[in-house]
Design a protein around this nucleic acid. Structure first.
Length: 430
RNA sequence: GCGGGUGUAGCUCAGUUGGUUAGAGCGUCGGUUUGUGGUACCGAAUGUCGCCAGUUCGAAUCUGGUCACCCGCCCCA
């Protein structure tokens, strides 16, 4: 009989126990930040109606980008980010929610695109959003960035530091208006500016779209700074001061690793204002490890009430799994989760041993029993060694008759026979 | 969808200008005191050499096709 494949599908991730412990440690630290900050956890369905996920009606085209399928007449698909489901959720529960609403989600998302390093088809994302009705001050954008920054800070001992790059879509809208670009030209210019640091002939490519003079004006934003366009038009002025005020607010919240980079655009077209991306300082070759921005109109397809959001997400898989794959994370501190391996010799001693396991666990000690009592003792102690247990508690006929345990320190090999209470004391002294 | 690369043991990979029974390290299992691990020593198991066809007396090796994976592009609503 042919054996079936053991590898998961391409682009899907599974971790070894030590990696998973690191992953869980990091995500729980980040969620601690969110809980302390008062955000509400939402756990939304992984599957949505296809019409919720996309406005496009070209099934073939979107099928290449999303996981879509059909049951009966219902077309549905796996969510590709947290924002769409959140918009639907908020629009559907307007009467039960209080705004501004602070939310977070920690969930798997799915994309059908071809996988690459740091780009998976199934990945964890931590989304944080603040939603308001009718309007939401720019101060909330800063709150989101500051909270995101704290989340990264909470795991900086594992993954290093991040830098925050902040852009503003309003700036470019004002700029294109000032330059008199058509809608098509604006759209193409958006894409080019977004890719500015990736492509070689930026000005040439831009010249093809908008002509040499305007291309040079756009390039001068990068050469002379965005502030050189002050006092041109009212909307330019306001978008520029919006960025400056934003940075000042972040500074006053203790965020020092943020800078304006007007080439930051973000792919999602629903963003309308301030946008930002987070990059790893130590591993700049990694794509953005998080980002977000403001979306004024996303829920318009679900509700006539205007719902405004500012939100961001941490690409948890990209950040952690990609770094683990590149062997950039020191996993040694996650290697020894077990305090005591309880080894049992003889089936007739199992009850006594399990009682001790229970006492150890009640005392807050991580204890696991080795219950194949017919295995040779050598195998048992080897197991204790391999799982990195700090101690082995050995239980055979002698120990049971004396109502004690033989406690062996696996690091130095010292062994003594103790009462359970004394064993607990010894184990607890780290 | 496009371009490039790689497919040999559970894993990482060797494998000479095509030549007999296919190799190493690590891991696994067993043994070197049946109540004592890490180190050391001895031994064992495991491969349709990704798949199909072709060239050849002979293919892991050369050619074509195909599939899978990796890297990059497109895309990122």
């Amino acid at each position: 009989m042919d054996l079936k494949p053991t590898k998961p599908l391409s682009g899907f991730i599974e971790l070894l126990p030590v990696q998973q412990r690191c992953f869980d440690y990091c995500t729980s630290r980040m969620m601690d930040v969110l809980r302390r900050s008062g955000y509400n956890r939402l756990d939304l369905p992984a599957i949505e109606r296809a019409e919720v996920l996309t406005d496009k009606d070209n099934w073939d085209e979107i099928e290449t980008q999303m996981f879509l399928f059909q049951k009966g007449d219902t077309k549905m698909g796996l969510r590709y980010d947290g924002t769409v489901g959140l918009s639907r959720y908020v629009a559907g529960h307007l009467n039960d929610l209080t705004f501004p609403l602070y939310t977070y989600q920690f969930a798997r998302n799915y994309r059908g695109e071809r996988p690459q390093r740091g780009r998976y088809r199934e990945f964890w994302q931590m989304d944080i959003d603040i939603l308001g009705l009718q309007s939401l001050s720019t101060n909330y954008d800063a709150e989101i960035v500051a909270t995101l920054s704290k989340m990264y800070e909470s795991i900086s001992d594992i993954v290093g530091n991040v830098i925050i790059k902040i852009g503003n879509r309003k700036f470019w809208n004002a700029m294109f208006e000032y330059l008199g670009l058509s809608e098509d030209q604006s759209r193409e210019a958006f894409v080019l500016i977004d890719k500015r640091d990736k492509i070689s002939g930026f000005v040439d490519a831009l010249t093809d779209v908008v002509g040499a003079q305007k291309a040079n004006e756009i390039e001068s934003v990068f050469q002379n700074g965005y502030r050189s366009f002050l006092n041109k038009t009212e909307s330019l002025d306001s978008s520029i001061s919006e960025m400056d005020e934003f940075i000042n607010l972040l500074n006053s919240m203790g965020i020092k690793n943020a800078e304006i980079d007007v080439s930051i655009m973000r792919g999602h077209s629903y963003y309308t204002g301030i946008v930002y991306e987070f990059f790893s300082v130590n591993y700049p070759e990694l794509p953005a490890v998080g980002g977000g921005g403001r979306y004024e109109n996303l829920a318009s397809k679900f509700s006539k009430t205007k719902i405004v959001g500012v939100g961001a997400s941490v690409g948890v898989s990209r950040l952690l799994v990609a770094l683990m794959e590149m062997a950039k994370i020191d996993l040694s501190r996650f290697e020894n989760p077990v305090d005591v391996a309880v080894l049992v010799m003889g089936d007739n001693n199992v009850a006594y041993a399990m009682n001790i396991v229970s006492q150890l666990r009640d005392a807050g000690i991580v204890a696991i029993p080795y219950l194949d009592t017919d295995k040779k003792f050598k195998n048992q102690i080897e197991y204790a060694d391999k799982i990195g247990a700090r101690f082995a508690a050995i239980i055979g006929d002698d120990e049971v008759s004396k109502n004690q345990v033989a406690l062996k320190n696996m690091e130095n090999g010292n062994q003594e026979t103790l009462s359970v209470a004394d064993a607990i004391k010894t184990i607890k002294v780290k």
